[in-house]
Design a protein around this nucleic acid. Sequence first.
DNA 1: CATGAGTTCGAACGCTTGTTCGAATTCCGA
DNA 2: TCGGAATTCGAACAAGCGTTCGAACTCATG
Lengths: 197, 197
Amino acid sequence: MRPYDERLEHLLARAATVFAERGYHPTTMRDLAAASGMSLAGMYYYVRGKAELLALIQERCFMRVLAGAEQALRAATDPVERLQLFIRHHVTFFAANLAEMKVLSHEANSLAGERQRKVNAIKRRYVDLLEGLLRDVAPDESRADRSAAAYALFGMMNWIYNWYDPAGEIDPDRLAGLIARIFIGGFAEARSTVQGG
Amino acid sequence: MRPYDERLEHLLARAATVFAERGYHPTTMRDLAAASGMSLAGMYYYVRGKAELLALIQERCFMRVLAGAEQALRAATDPVERLQLFIRHHVTFFAANLAEMKVLSHEANSLAGERQRKVNAIKRRYVDLLEGLLRDVAPDESRADRSAAAYALFGMMNWIYNWYDPAGEIDPDRLAGLIARIFIGGFAEARSTVQGG
DNA sequence: CATGAGTTCGAACGCTTGTTCGAATTCCGA
DNA sequence: TCGGAATTCGAACAAGCGTTCGAACTCATG
């Protein structure tokens, strides 16, 4: 990896943690300079500005979740099992990338124009993926209910950044299992035998 | 109601909708002046500053949810029924007060110092209330799992502001029923076989 | 009409913000 | 060792921010 790319990566990673801690808007470019070890002006050699920093963080992270989910789903064909895999992947990825995922969840409306549109396009694909899984799991359910259920599930999973403590007594796998149990038990109920994995 | 109180109420209501639409930090006092019909300086006759505006919105709204929940719970003694009442109240209140509740959920960390502490104290009471209900519903569950489940439920319910459209085809009551079904079906019932306890 | 408390607001202040720019420095192949 | 490209950064800028202040206005009451 070229030194240039390494430094950009470093900047993005530091920026993600600062955005996560302090929020995108209150964070100043001077904060990011201090956190990344660069000078204020130096960052502009790597990035067009503050908004591009946020956009890059969100796009890259979201693409990784999407790709990771698609790959995880290849491990099964049974609908309930696939839904379980989706949940497990999302939750463990969230826990393993807390800063980026918090920025993705909490700053979903902090971008504007073309940048916002680009991230929303990835989000659309990701939501569609889940809604497809729900269709296979609960085909009798109305479209509106399935859609609402999808957002309810995202709510359970994305709310994590508000309370989850990685150093606490509940590990990501267990949390994923709990959420999967709640959702599948309550929504996909009595359609297939469920087992934690 | 005295004209003074009426105007303060008006200011708080308008501020809540602007904070909800644009976010607390990007919103300027000039935005709030325009939205409330007051002059920039005029608002300072009613409020100490921007932070106090947010604090008042959050405190008042949170106290109303808490009181409303406590009252709603008086209608039943059966644990599962009480949990259902809690969920129904939270969701319908959320839908009926979208702006304030979005500000409460999304700007939970936008206050500092004493103001933050004051709101967090109400939140503590509200979370305790739900955890108590979960204790009655699932006494075998570990404390950590119950706590995580409580936050999962809050996630489903509070995430609403990210997607719920009051003009859409799903009404608040139906949404409350769906969320209650998911959570109660997955957490409170089917206590028997599933691993992870 | 005169009074004074209650209320409004134009104008300004001091500060912080994101961004820019050109000079200085570092890097590296020849 | 040299020279040009890549990289760094101190310093400054214009714009926008929250807040303040005192003068002006409103209006019920004497």
